[in-house]
């Protein structure tokens, strides 16, 4: 069996005296789509942000593609990585945010082509051409010159997905990608994500969309109060939750 894309062992994280992650252990395999469910405040988003080192973990081990996140191990000692090394590793992991976080002073195409140009040093013409392809892929070929403020929420989130794809990541993290959208716009974003999953992208998705988790997810993880309560195939977890907390959560959202 190949090396897991994400491997977490006993990951802990506190904000001041509040312990948000109390020992998370899980693995995401290459080409797997893992959906993380759970009530708000359960630590799902924090865990996702630890994976690309937007948050530092306090204890445990967290690695992506066999390499520690944010640190380097040499013998028994662990060294903190420099800013530029952290940045290089982040460039291999895509992230899509709840509130899109598009750059408002750039057009859709500039948003998508910026990072390949500045981080990967791809020549401008090539970066723009590839950016156009990525925007076509999410169905926004006619919006390349629009600024984010001129786009609907669903269109903005699709630009954000194209922006992540343009870096050709080996893993994409989705942090509640549809939670800030009007209900009628959720479908177009989920469709784009479903297509990605079919193409074999490794995805870790924090979401409240049970339907998406059921249809697209290979694995469902239920988190509560900083721990993983239950893991399994969507069909099993939704039909037959083993844990009381999962059952009561599902009874509220289904």
């Amino acid at each position: 069996m190949s090396e897991p894309m994400v491997k977490a062992e006993g990951v802990h994280k506190s904000f001041g005296r509040l312990e948000v992650l109390k020992g998370i252990t899980l693995e995401v395999q290459p080409r797997e789509v893992m959906c993380v469910l759970g009530p708000s405040g359960s630590g799902k988003s924090t865990f996702l942000r630890c994976i690309n080192h937007l948050e530092k973990i306090d204890a445990g081990r967290l690695s992506v593609d066999g390499e520690l996140v944010g640190y380097r191990q040499s013998g028994d000692k662990i060294y903190e990585l420099r800013d530029s090394e952290v940045a290089r590793k982040r460039s291999e992991i895509g992230m899509v945010f709840q509130r899109f976080n598009l750059f408002p002073h750039m057009t859709a195409l500039e948003n998508v082509a910026m990072a390949p140009m500045r981080v990967k040093n791809i020549p401008k013409a090539e970066a723009l051409a590839r950016g156009r392809e990525q925007l076509e892929r999410v169905g926004l070929a006619d919006k390349i010159k629009s600024y984010p403020a001129q786009l609907s929420g669903g269109q903005q989130q699709r630009v954000a997905i194209a922006r992540a794809l343009a870096m050709e990541p080996k893993l994409i993290l989705f942090d509640e990608p549809t939670s800030a959208l009007d209900p009628e716009l959720v479908g177009e974003v989920l469709d784009a994500m479903r297509r990605l999953a079919e193409e074999g992208m490794t995805m870790l998705v924090v979401t409240h969309e049970i339907g998406f988790a059921r249809e697209v997810g290979d694995t469902v993880v239920f988190m509560d109060d900083g721990v993983v309560v239950e893991t399994g195939k969507p069909r099993e977890v939704f039909a037959n939750p083993r844990h009381e907390r999962t059952r009561s959560f599902l009874s509220k959202v289904l």
């Binding site: 937007l54 800013d83 992230m95 509130r99 981080v119």
Partner: peptide
Amino acid sequence: DEGQTEAAQALGFTRLQTMRRIVLPQ
């Protein structure tokens, strides 16, 4: 907005690049 810095860092921008390309222009 802090989300701008996070988005830039998630794409692999260094702190300096984030300041120059994303934060200062805004």
